[in-house]
Design a protein around this nucleic acid. Structure first.
Length: 319
DNA sequence: AATTGCGCCAACCGCTACTAG
DNA sequence: GCTAGTAGCGGTTGGCGCAAT
């Protein structure tokens, strides 16, 4: 037996909002606030809308200081940095961009940023392949020069450990953080995060970066997690997590052969041949020893993305 | 001029988390 | 501790407008 629906779907208006509806909702909320109960709001205003719909309309469109479109390069930086770090946590990402809504950012990522990234990556990869300096090209290339998926069937190069790499708590190497609800909870310790116990609004997220975010600096081996958001769990979940982020980001970045200066330890000299696929990987590195460090693919991917999107080298300054 | 394809974005849906009784 | 109601989130869909054919 399911829960009762929040409204009678047959009898509420759906679809685009009329200007009069917008005006009614805006006027009421500006005067009285939401009253903490969206479901009760529409009848009060005389709107034949679902409370959820009113909430969405207010948050995404009517709320003061909402910005639409025209994302700046800096915003691109932040969105990409955060996506790399935490995946599709749009509400958290939106919290770092004043005036932007999660819906806006989600749409922007899905429709533009992701494509921008993919298109550029493929172009660069193609260029490199032509020079003969890049990884051996095994994918198909169509007439227009677009690369197909490289090495479909297991030959593509990936730094992805498989299966899921073990993730350990920094302070307790024996402790598998996936089993630790507190670790998972730390993921959400962000302004606006629903699990946040910190109601102090002055607790500004450490995530507002000098753009771009130097990802590896988010970790402090001695003190454990510097940034509660980017816990080992989050890296693991973001990269391998429930939304197939790993696959997506892997697809985006497997075209990018760039590695980071000073991070050779992640890859080994020249990489390690993957027994299963014959690929060069970092699979056999000791992840439990590296524990607090960021997943190498994310690091590689991050710099690749910076180059790809913004065409400027980014030195992550990792010692 | 008509049709088709595609990109963009607002809105919806379904689920989980939270909270009050 | 349990249950029901609500808020919030992220994924998905549908419609509109523009460009290509």
């Amino acid at each position: 037996m399911g829960r009762a629906p929040c409204c009678d779907k047959a009898n509420v208006k759906r679809g685009p909002w009329a200007p009069e509806e917008d005006a009614k909702l805006k006027a009421y909320i500006e005067q009285h606030g939401t009253g903490g109960n969206w479901i009760a709001l529409p009848p009060k205003i005389g709107l034949n809308r679902c409370g959820k719909s009113c909430r969405l309309r207010w948050l995404n469109y009517l709320r003061p200081n909402i910005k639409h479109g025209g994302f700046s390069e800096e915003e691109d930086h932040i969105i990409c940095s955060l996506y790399i770090s935490i995946g599709s946590r749009w509400s958290i990402i939106a919290a770092q961009l004043p005036g932007r809504t999660d819906n806006d950012i989600k749409n922007y990522w899905n429709t533009r940023l992701k494509k921008k990234l993919l298109g550029k990556q493929r172009k660069d990869h193609q260029k490199q392949a032509r020079r003969g300096g890049g990884p051996k090209q095994e994918g198909k290339s169509d007439e227009s020069g677009n690369l197909g998926v490289i090495g479909e069937g297991g030959s593509r190069s990936t730094y992805w450990p498989e299966p899921a790499m073990p993730v350990y708590s920094t302070s307790r190497p024996d402790h598998h953080v996936h089993d630790d609800p507190a670790s998972t909870n730390r993921l959400l310790l962000m302004p606006g995060g629903r699990s946040s116990n910190d109601s102090n609004p002055s607790h500004q997220s450490p995530f507002i970066p000098p753009s771009p975010v130097p990802l590896p600096q988010l970790y402090d081996d001695s003190a454990g997690l510097m940034n509660p958001l980017v816990s080992n769990t989050s890296i693991s979940e973001a990269l391998q997590g429930p939304h197939r982020f790993a696959d997506e980001i892997d697809e985006i970045f497997h075209f990018n052969p760039v590695k980071l200066e000073g991070l050779d330890c992640f890859y080994g000299a020249g990489g390690i041949v993957d027994e299963h696929h014959g690929n060069t990987t970092s699979e056999s590195m000791n992840w439990s020893a590296v524990g607090p460090l960021i997943h190498p693919n994310a690091v590689t991917s991050y710099q690749g993305m910076q180059q790809c999107l913004f065409e400027e080298p980014v030195h992550l300054g990792m010692q």
